[in-house]
Amino acid sequence: MTSMDFLLLTKGPLFQIAIAIFALGMLVRLVEIFALGRPHNYAAARGGQLIPGLKTVYKRFNPDPGTFKRAPFDVIVGIIWHIGFVVALLLFIPHIELIKSMFGVTWPGLPNPVVDAVTAITLFALLATLIHRLTHPVKKFLSTPEDYLIWTVTFLPVLTGYLAYHRLINPYPLALGLHILAAEIFLIVLPFTKLTHIFTAFVARWYNGAIFGRKGVQS
């Protein structure tokens, strides 16, 4: 197999399979959650659920001052790499063109050097989170093989993207093929691991805000 064959494989059938597993898997996960429902609540409500729920969805992007003081590394590095990942994913012009070709929607991107810098920062931040996970007593204690697996499948698309952009792997079709393969692994692994939090965290935050909101507390 030539590197071009490899690229065509990753851009073609493998991409279709990955998208299908991701979409179907995530749909199943969401159905599994919502199908459980919530029992009727007979207690007289003090406040609403919808708005407090939505506020909590937003507020958890921005931790309370006490948490920031007690875990500044988590807050700062966590925010940096999440934003970096999303910027590289959604504002890199070739990615936008791929999305346009698939869904027909489009938006303006950032200049390549900007995305390049963001990617480099994201890589460093992700490495820092790995070191933190391996050394912080609580994180080390909680971590399971799955945590290291999802770190790896998150790190690889960013790393291979960076290497491909800088032509650090040759030939180029191989570099691009590896990047696409890494993204496909990410998509395939997502529904079966805690990477689901990309979607379910919004659901969880809403329920949290709704449960507290009903009792008159904005969580």
């Binding site: 459980l36 919530r38 805690k194 969880a204």
Partner: peptide
Amino acid sequence: MDAPVASFFSSCVHCGLCATA
């Protein structure tokens, strides 16, 4: 087990920030 519980367990990434609280 209800929908909130399932959404919570689906979302935990073992960041450990709950320990600081």
